[in-house]
Amino acid sequence: MATQRSNRTLSEHESKQLLTSYGIPVVEEALAGDPDAASHRAEEVGFPVAVKLCGSGIAHKTERGLVRLGLGDSAAVRTAARDLLGAARPEDGEVSVLVSRMMRGSRELIAGVTRDPTFGPCVMLGIGGVLAEVIGDFVFRMTPVSRLDADEMAADLRMHALLGQFRGEPAVDSDALGAVLCGLGALGAERADVQAVDVNPLIVVDGRPVAVDALVELGAM
């Protein structure tokens, strides 16, 4: 708490790069500096896409209306990119837009890392993505998180049935979910400068969890 003021966050794109380096699958995406570049990137990742304003000073995109979802063509992407770049504030620092493929999946999870004052780095898995705090179905383990720990985390969720076959979608691949949780555990244990990680939402696409948004908070070292 004392270090709160000196903490800083990585941009969404940097956060996801850090996750990738720990083997956590993230949504296919690319940065663009202007509306034309955004449109090209959208064609590369494939429509429909999401476009978000991206910068290391931006933590609450949704609340500020800096997210455009389900854009189906180049024109829509250009408009969105222009609007978002225009909405940037000086305190956001250097900004660009992040163009990512829209992920389809009816199940949203949340995962993360926190530093407990007593037990040190801990990994969390929860149900509900952005609704997770209200739903209140989540579990913690301290690092290192073994593959067995990861399986037990999933089994300990009250709504663990949601990880089975669901509305025509396959069951969540336990190896893939295990890789996310063990990867977060390794990140939390190795990176003493990382104060917190939110992977929210972690969307289940064809049975495999994919980080669609991420926020890494660095503490003052």
Partner: peptide
Amino acid sequence: AKAAASHTGAMATDDTVFDGIARQ
């Protein structure tokens, strides 16, 4: 919950963390 910017931190109370570690 810790006064935290992150959702994960906000969900990490003494109770929920101890509970998970007890299971572990």
